[in-house]
């Protein structure tokens, strides 16, 4: 039998002699974080893809703006730089409490709050936008259930966490997480995407605003198209329309 009191003492004496890293690196910060080469490569690659994607979307936004003139159903946002209207109509959601706005396809709406859901600590607001009918949505939704092809916008207390680190606690498993950088409404942000089920993939955008973090999240799959012709491009266009007022 090993004498356990002695073991305790030996463990403390020996392990307490192991060197510590510099104190500045104890708490993760932008300066102290050490992204891997792989991660850096992914970030660079994702940035290239996003820049090319943004150029394409900008061209489409111009076309969509022309469509907007045919029928605007709600008041535009203050400082809306690109009054994009999607899929034949304008449907602008404006959140004065948290100072953002977003343009939705004409047939989209705000889903009702999920009954019984307990917001995690630090979540200030959560709005889910859906292009599904009321019946379809009610059938799909549940506590902690992700409804594919819906867009969720959350506002969180940032608590010192940077946008570049938010994916770590957002369910993005390091094993399969693809992280990148983006610009939303002239603010730089970070993106992450990861599989949540074999046939579903989560996509998230993180933008810092002062002591708050704006998180936009949607899941795609199964397949390349959701109900009523919603595609990933539809969702990216909605995200791209984000405006801070």
């Amino acid at each position: 039998m090993l004498p356990e009191l002695t073991i305790d003492r030996v463990f403390r004496r020996e392990l307490d002699s192991l060197p510590l890293p510099p104190e500045g690196s104890w708490i993760p910060t932008r300066a102290a974080s050490r992204p891997s080469i792989l991660l850096t490569t992914l970030v660079v690659a994702a940035t290239v893809v996003l820049v090319l994607g943004a150029a394409t979307l900008a061209r489409e936004a111009s076309d969509a703006a022309a469509a907007a003139r045919r029928g605007v159903s709600t008041a535009p946002l203050i400082n809306l730089p690109r009054p994009t209207c999607l899929r034949g109509g304008c449907n602008v959601y404006r959140n004065d409490a948290f100072g953002y706005g977003i343009v939705l396809p004409a047939d989209w709406r705000v889903a009702p709050p999920v009954r019984g859901r307990t917001p995690p600590t630090g979540e200030l607001e959560r709005v889910e936008f859906t292009g599904q009918t009321s019946d379809e949505w009610t059938h799909l939704v549940g506590i902690d259930v992700v409804v594919p092809w819906d867009l969720v916008v959350e506002v969180h207390e940032r608590r010192g966490v940077l946008a570049m680190d938010w994916w770590r606690v957002d369910g993005c498993d390091r094993n399969s997480c693809v992280v990148g950088q983006t610009t939303l409404s002239q603010l730089s942000g970070y993106t992450a995407s990861w599989p949540i089920e074999p046939s579903l993939r989560m996509h998230a955008y993180y933008v810092q605003r002062g002591d708050r973090m704006l998180v936009l999240r949607y899941a795609t799959g199964p397949g390349n198209e959701g109900p009523r012709g919603i595609t990933e491009r539809t969702l990216q266009q909605i995200v791209d329309s984000l405006t801070f007022g």
Partner: peptide, 8 residues
């Protein structure tokens, strides 16, 4: 640390 900030 980050996990504790979100869900202490």
């Amino acid at each position: 640390f980050v996990a504790g900030l979100r869900h202490p």
